[in-house]
Design a binder for these strands. Structure first.
Lengths: 195, 195
DNA sequence: GTTTTTTCGGAACAATTGTTCAATAACCGC
DNA sequence: GCGGTTATTGAACAATTGTTCCGAAAAAAC
């Protein structure tokens, strides 16, 4: 056989990315073979190489895409007037955005080791950019007296770790709806940075 | 050749565990071959199987050992009188203990996916046990009015995520000594759970 | 309807994987 | 220094890995 009936790059391409995202998140980059990805898509291994030069690019593409969209999404959010309101917006945005993109978030945090040094630097830069958004909010709030943070950089890392942690346990079928979880985490966030 | 001069199971055994710990932490379980571990120890692959039945047991043994020691170490700590003092002790202990065992902590959090279901259940149980220690403190403090936490379970997960996050960025050569970092994180922890 | 382009199957490649095992040399109690 | 025990080598195994490539079939262009 050769080209299959109904095959289209606009269909197969995204399906490969979806499959890779899902499988990398489930089992980890190194544990997922190109054949497993192909099988998930319903295609032979060779076909994957019409869409990616190699496995590493597949991973890097997914991670870069996620991080760029994350930064862009935050930049497009409304910007409330006060640091306090901006921090609340950030906390809720972070939890919500990360929740609906569990797999991509998981990969972006877990597969850094499997990136080549150059690719790692790119992702790390994007992560640093995003983290800087929170750091800026904390610094503004510290300056105008809204917050009490001795070190905005450390505080931003601490808060992001806490907020991102929601993904490790929250399930939509669980005890609480996401909105209540966001309320709780925002409350802890607010108290942690105020006097 | 056969047995090498100076070889001893009391020496090789621990060295294999050290090498596996280091390499798993560096590159991830799936990306580390048994040959790489052997090479790090300075031995041939076959020799590893005098010390572990298979690769999975090597990983599981490292993770279980770490988690059991973590729980035991906390149980042996002094138990201050008030929930507030106990929480402070926990925050500082957690950051300190995790810092000096970076590799084991990293593996215990990153390689859960590579455990068989039975092994996963064991590790998950130990993690839950440890987390329960913090949850208990928060609940006691909530009952006697020291803390203001609407949900001790969620709060404990949030705090552990925040505290564990220190490991992702703290380096001893960095700007601050660990003691100051512990001060900052304890301050955020305290404020996050008080009214 | 013919030609060009797009997309994929299927086989092949060398390299690497986890694991087993017989042979053998070093160690150690006597 | 002899004999049993312990620890390791080195080769071998089948299975799987990422990647390449050619031919062929479907789709698109004309």
């Amino acid at each position: 056989m050769a080209r299959t009936s109904g095959s289209h790059s606009e269909i197969t391409g995204p399906r490969i990315l979806e499959a890779a995202l899902k499988l990398f998140a489930e089992s980890g980059y190194a544990a997922v073979s190109m054949r497993k990805i192909a099988s998930e898509v319903g295609v032979q291994v060779g076909a994957l190489y019409n869409y990616t030069p190699d496995k590493q690019s597949l991973l890097f593409g997914l991670m870069r895409d996620h991080m760029e969209k994350l930064v862009a999404a935050w930049d497009q959010e409304t910007r409330p007037d006060t640091p306090m309101a901006r921090l609340e917006h950030f906390a809720r945005f972070h939890v919500g955005y990360h929740h609906v993109r569990r797999d991509a978030v998981f990969i972006a945090y877990m597969e850094l080791r499997n990136l080549t040094p150059e690719n790692f630097a790119v992702i790390e830069g994007l992560r640093s950019t995003y983290e800087g958004k929170l750091e800026d909010i904390l610094e503004e709030g510290a300056r105008n007296g809204s917050f009490s943070v001795p070190d905005a950089k450390i505080a931003s890392m601490a808060l992001i770790a806490m907020l991102t942690g929601v993904n490790t346990w929250f399930r939509e079928t669980g005890r609480l709806p996401l909105e209540e979880v966001q309320d709780i985490y925002w409350e802890m966030t607010r108290k942690a940075v105020t006097a």
